[in-house]
């Protein structure tokens, strides 16, 4: 928490896994993620304005593609939040007295969220969860895993084109993509990752909706060669990391209403 400047730049962002979600409670980490163009979704109530649901606060919940992207690109490490806190608890007990850990402010006992213990902000934190382990825990079957990877490659290629991605329910897509920070720009793309063929009526509907809101409807999927590569992956093997590194490149097409006819 108190680490600043250069040290912060090179240290990994901790991605605490709580249940099956990755949630960020540290505002500094939220800022770092935002700078990387990883937006997540704020899910907490703002203590100063609890009676509305337009603006939210921490925790920031990250989507699974965002988490994979962060780990793949070396910006973050997934940690088992429970294990990490248990470990910190253990260390704290031996290192300092209970009075030191819990500060009494007025009637409240204050326990810091992320105890500043060395093991927490290092590149090899306690309770680290491997990427493969994380992915497989979310996709228990081969089918689910292959679908996830296909979607992820589309997400990654949209990001590689310089777009920032948010969930797309608002415009009837799987993702919506912004040319910069969503607070400064309108979105350009409604993205539909394809795991198989797309219905022609969906093309018509998607294209019409997107054009109506000044966007394009983007479909992205894999060509046969890459599909074959994905079909060979199973949840048992170690090759998920290899597949992430491999040059699986989705192909995309942008659809809009032609304006005549």
């Amino acid at each position: 928490m108190e680490v600043e400047g250069e040290e912060t730049e090179c240290s990994m962002i901790l991605l605490p896994l709580i249940g099956d979600r990755v949630m960020i409670f540290d505002v500094e980490d939220v800022k770092k993620l935002r700078k990387l163009g990883i937006l997540g979704v704020l899910t907490g109530t703002l203590p100063s304005a609890p009676q509305q649901n337009v603006f939210h606060g921490i925790p920031l919940e990250l989507g699974i593609y965002e988490v994979i992207w962060l780990v793949e690109n070396g910006y973050g490490t997934i940690v088992d939040s429970l294990k990490m806190h248990e470990e910190v608890e253990k260390q704290s007990k031996s290192e300092m007295s209970r009075q030191n850990r819990e500060r009494v402010i007025g009637d409240f006992t204050h326990i810091p969220n992320s105890p500043a213990v060395n093991s927490v902000h290092s590149n090899d934190p306690v309770g680290a969860v491997g990427l493969r382990e994380f992915i497989v825990s979310r996709c228990p079957t081969n089918e689910a895993l292959r679908a996830l990877l296909t979607d992820y490659f589309v997400f990654r290629s949209v990001r590689q084109n310089g777009y920032q991605v948010m969930p797309g329910l608002r415009f009837g897509g799987d993702m919506i993509a912004y040319p910069g920070d969503p607070l400064r720009y309108h979105s350009h793309l409604i993205v539909r990752p394809l795991r198989g063929p797309v219905n022609l009526l969906d093309i018509v509907a998607g294209g019409r909706l997107a054009t109506g809101v000044k966007k394009v409807w983007v479909i992205g999927g894999l060509l046969q060669e890459d599909k074959t590569k994905i079909q060979e992956i199973t949840i048992e093997e170690e090759s998920i990391d290899q597949i992430l590194e491999s040059e699986v490149k989705p192909i995309s097409f942008s659809i809009e209403w032609a304006g005549f006819g």
């Binding site: 949209v158 084109n161 777009y163 040319p179 350009h188 793309l189 093309i203 018509v204 294209g207 997107a210 054009t211 000044k214 966007k215 394009v216 983007v218 995309s252 097409f253 942008s254 659809i255 809009e256 209403w257 032609a258 005549f260 006819g261």
Partner: peptide, 12 residues
């Protein structure tokens, strides 16, 4: 009905 299909990702 006519729809444009652009090659790759394009801006609206």
């Amino acid at each position: 009905v006519y729809y444009f299909v652009h090659d790759g990702i394009v801006k609206p």
